[in-house]
Design a protein around this nucleic acid. Structure first.
Lengths: 333, 333
DNA sequence: ATGAAAGCGCTAACAC
DNA sequence: GTGTTAGCGCTTTCAT
């Protein structure tokens, strides 16, 4: 329970000055071998451990080896895989990840952002749920790089790693249209999210190109969790006429849809395509628009690292591709 | 890109002393309303932000509001859900989570532990992959509480939150035995992990109670990833005589087994039960031994918080229950 | 090869 | 209500 020994105590015990102890332990050189050994054993005896925050305060004053990640919720595999890819890449460069979940609450995101900046994180990766990011412009001038992931910054110029949401959703709709479907339901997440809007747009583009003007009749939004999604899909199936196919715009909604469809009834024949790969998508035979969340994390890390390395070039925007993985839920019957 | 303004600069700009500026901004009171406003606007103008590490250095000297989590890999839903539950609970008490993945590499775990302790985390939650933890005894004396999750500490007395691995695995075996199975395959993770060993033991207990002495014939271990698990299950199915049922001892292995069984052949008739719930377990109809990783995270947080609160009582060990969720992969045929 | 003094950004303690 | 001084644990600078 006692407080930790400081360098001064190690120095006292080994009979040298604080600076010599510092030199000995940080391997800075210019210390006699014998002195170094004495300091080392004093440190071991006391259980000394460097105070990295004190070192950082003295050194740069202003930065640590911490990188912050703000995202919705780690329990969502999309975010946790993103975090995993990010962390792996950062670690290779001596940086450590500090995570904070916003639960898609803009107010919390603001507070958590402040808190991470106060901790002097070296940079920030954020899957933002805020409508607007102008307030961060001042921060950028003080040298904290931001990398936006999944959703682009608004009113702010910053690096971003995004998905080809529009193209992926368009491909999904086209795939269903090619299979002969005309009444296609679409169930989406929170309508305020840009990812949602882009996916709906891509879907709309394909539908309208196919001459289907009333696709909105089968659009249901704001299904943010699995239960809501399940209910939304059930509601869609209960329509008359019912859609013959459903496009779900993210992994949780697809999960809800699978639960709804499993309940049999007319549902069994309904075709399904989902945005995001699923853990057991292949076993279940779910057709999806797949992409790689880990890769998004790695890209974000690389952008951040290049900024930390002094890259002052214009903001970059990486758009990662999606691909159609055709499985049995859209097989011809 | 410039460095951040310090309190001294804010003080200078508003024409007060550093301490007054400190008081004004930290809301400590005893500041004239007018002064406070002047300081505040100077801070805004400069884009001032508190340096929390400096504050912490001055305050307690030795601790921050950070809690470290060491676990295998966030991409594994077990760990990410654990992290999610932990973070939520910590956040309610003003603490923030800093995560580090060990990839089940003991050496890295050691380095990452050091690194987190140097950062003066307030406490450490660890799903350890090390064989032994005696080296941490000295740390405990310096007041950094450790909470072990999923796997117990060895040669160290510390709080732990564990699963009823033995009971869950025994229940799994019993369930298969009740269904009339006698040749039951069991595929496990890294054999050095205590969770693995406990699960095998529970399984063995049920098998031997049923008079099946040669169950080891169908034991395959060290299937640490999905691919290895898939191959292990295929190998099991190719035996003559083949097992009529398989018990997979964690979520990744179950995933691999599902892939193997899907490939048809004799596999289609093989019964399956897995340890850990799966995201789409209900849709797939996989019988599992389920438990709640988020709950494990919350428990760990509560244990840690009570230690931070001054609880000096003996080490506690929480064992969370598992439950059998019966679905179609073990349905009678 | 070693040490003394100063200071990173902040706050506790004690003035005034 | 406000300022001064000292110091958290460490490293930089400059001596010796």
């Amino acid at each position: 329970m006692g407080s930790r020994p400081s360098l001064a105590q190690v120095a006292a015990l080994s009979g040298v000055s604080v600076k010599t102890a510092s030199r000995a332990l940080s391997g800075e050189g210019y210390v006699a071998v014998e002195t170094k050994a004495r300091v080392q054993s004093a440190a071991d005896e006391l259980g000394y451990r460097l105070n990295r925050t004190a070192r950082e305060l003295r050194r740069g004053g202003n930065t640590s080896t911490l990188v912050g990640l703000l995202s919705g919720d780690l329990a969502n595999p999309f975010y946790s895989r993103l975090a995993s890819g990010l962390e792996r890449e950062l670690r290779m460069h001596g940086l450590q990840l500090i995570t904070a979940s916003t639960d898609e609450n803009p107010e919390w995101e603001g507070r958590l952002t402040d808190s991470l900046l106060e901790r002097r994180v070296r940079g920030l990766v954020v899957a933002s749920t805020m409508a607007e990011h102008g307030h961060l412009a001042a921060e950028r001038r003080h040298g904290s790089p931001f990398v936006f992931v999944d959703r682009p910054p608004v009113n702010l110029t910053a690096d971003a790693v995004l998905l080809d949401n529009r193209g992926g959703a368009k491909r999904a709709a086209e795939h269903l249209l090619e299979r002969g479907h005309r009444r296609i339901g679409i169930v989406g997440d929170l309508s305020r999210l840009s990812t949602h809007q882009d996916r709906v747009e891509g879907f709309a583009e394909a539908m309208e190109a196919a001459g289907i003007a009333d696709w909105r009749e089968y659009l249901l939004e704001d299904a943010h969790d699995v239960d809501k999604a399940e209910r939304a899909v059930l509601a869609l199936l209960a329509r008359d006429p019912a859609p013959t196919a459903v496009f779900t715009t993210n992994n949780r909604i697809t999960t809800g849809a699978l639960r709804a469809l499993r309940q049999g009834g007319g549902g069994r024949d309904t075709a399904l395509i989902g945005f995001d790969e699923l853990d057991l998508g292949d076993v279940l035979g779910v057709t999806v628009i797949a992409h790689d969340p880990e890769e998004m994390g790695r890209h974000a890390a690389r952008l951040l690292l290049s900024r930390l390395d002094g890259d002052e070039g214009p903001a970059r925007r990486v758009v990662l591709p999606t691909r159609l993985v055709e499985r049995s839920t859209t097989a011809p019957r």
